[in-house]
Simulated assay, not measured.
Amino acid sequence: MKKRALSLALAMIFGYAATATEPVESEKKQVNVEKSKVTWKGYKVTGSHEGTINLKSGYLVMDGKKLTGGEFVVDMSTLTVTDLEGDSKGKLEGHLKSGDFFGTESNETSKLVFTSVRPMNKNSYTVNGDLTIKGITKPVTLVVTLFEGKATATLKVDRTKYDIKYGSGSFFDDLGDKTIYDEFDLVVDLVY
């Protein structure tokens, strides 16, 4: 009888331990592309320009309330300038979509895939990812903050790593006030 009770107790303990350590299934939370927003800001010696790009698709991978992954695609043809109007706006948008910059005719999308996610605190995460622009993929690090069905990410991108060298003081001499800085900022507000 003691042997049977001991066997039963061990079976219960090991059975409980096996179920207690099974991983929680991750859930993909699709991003609402209509309500989400991607803004950019580029800098030059004489000032800056800013605008938006539309998300084409995206999702966050959640383990309960914890971020564990994600992937996003932006539609580069939707790149717009918001700080100019009229001909100046059209000229800059056309130039940014040209081969000098993003070459949107042959590079219709850009993509960010999370490769690792580390919690910083209750709501914020340090994310390493692979960013693809103009068919070139490079590693990036960003901070993602989650709060009530929204995620915000900020990212600095060095455009020269993606073969976007136009007006870069790192590659061309004597540009003077025509110099465009290599890094631009992205702020992503996601609704999921």
Rank of each mutant, 00 (worst) to 15 (best):
L96W: 09
D87F: 05
D87Q: 13
S88A: 06
S98F: 01
E85A: 13
D75H: 02
T78D: 02
G94L: 08
L84G: 03
L92A: 10
G99S: 13
E108T: 14
G86Y: 04
N107E: 13
G90D: 12
K91H: 01
T82K: 08
K91W: 02
T82F: 06
S88R: 05
N107P: 01
G86S: 05
V81E: 15
F102A: 03
T80A: 15
T80R: 15
V74M: 13
N107G: 11
L96V: 09
V81G: 03
K91S: 04
T78S: 11
E108I: 08
H95C: 00
D75T: 12
L92D: 08
M76H: 06
L79H: 07
T82G: 07
G94E: 07
E108Y: 11
S88E: 04
S98E: 02
S98C: 07
L84A: 12
E105L: 10
G99P: 00
H95F: 02
T82P: 00
L79M: 10
T82N: 04
V81I: 14
D83A: 12
E85H: 03
D83F: 06
D75L: 12
L92E: 13
G90H: 02
V74I: 15
D83N: 15
D87E: 11
M76L: 11
E85Q: 08
D75S: 10
E93H: 09
M76T: 13
K89T: 05
F101W: 03
E108M: 13
S98I: 02
S88W: 11
V81P: 00
S106T: 12
V81C: 15
